[in-house]
């Protein structure tokens, strides 16, 4: 059921082969997209599972559990982080579009992911701010992505990015301050 490639690629990536990532990402994304579609097709709310479950399902499916270390797992979720971010942001936009008319799809996505509605606006704004942050400090933006969009720990984030724990910690703190200020400014501008 699982894809031996993915496990293999995760190993390669963990041991420093950055090309592995290029091969890994599309497989993970496809699976996530496919699963998201399945989750969306389950109409009833008692069938809805959340993004966490969705990512776990993708992980269990793609990766040979017996053959991975926690580092591989962190890498996997590190990749998923980008995808989750994209899903959540698309979703948040979709909800706003839906409110302007149409877009039942977006509303069921809300159910599928279990995202609280009040968070939609925050997430959309955060995504914009994160985009701006990435322009001046891409690594820092990745730290935020992993910490916020998957809940990876400091250590796990450090492992995925191949930097020290203390760097992650520093980046995390200053990024939060920067983003918070950015969002506050935008809010008062609006």
């Amino acid at each position: 059921m699982y894809s031996p490639d993915v496990t293999q690629l995760l190993h390669q990536w963990s041991s420093g082969n950055r090309n592995a990532l290029d091969n890994l990402t599309p497989v993970v994304y496809d699976e996530l997209r496919r699963l998201a579609a399945i989750y969306l097709s389950r109409e009833r709310s008692d069938h809805t599972l959340q993004a966490t479950a969705l990512v776990h399902e993708a992980y269990m499916k793609l990766v040979d559990q017996k053959n991975v270390r926690w580092q591989n797992r962190a890498h996997f979720f590190g990749i998923a982080a980008q995808m989750i971010r994209r899903i959540l942001v698309d979703h948040a936009r979709g909800v706003r579009a839906a409110k302007r008319g149409g877009g039942a799809m977006a509303l069921s996505l809300d159910e599928a992911l279990g995202v609280s509605e009040k968070r939609d606006l925050e997430i959309e704004a955060l995504d914009d701010a994160l985009e701006a942050l990435a322009k001046i400090d891409p690594q820092q933006a990745r730290v935020v992505e992993m910490r916020f969009f998957t809940g990876l720990s400091i250590e796990e984030t450090a492992e995925v990015l191949g930097i020290s724990d203390s760097t992650v910690k520093r980046d995390w703190v200053s990024a939060k301050a920067w983003l918070f200020r950015e969002l506050s400014r935008r809010k008062s501008d609006a």
Binding site: Q50, A51, T52, V55, H56, F77, A80, I84, L88, V115, R119, I123, L126, V144, R147, F148, F149, T150, G151, L152, S153, E155, E156, V173, S174, K176, A177, W178, L179, F180, R181, S184
Partner: peptide
């Protein structure tokens, strides 16, 4: 200074991950 202010005001900003895969600190 403005970042220091922001840091003081930020509170739990971003601390509650949108999607929590790993469930808390080890």
């Amino acid at each position: 200074l403005s970042l220091l202010d922001a840091n003081d005001d930020a509170g739990t900003f971003l601390e509650d991950a949108a999607v929590d895969i790993t469930k808390g600190p080890a």
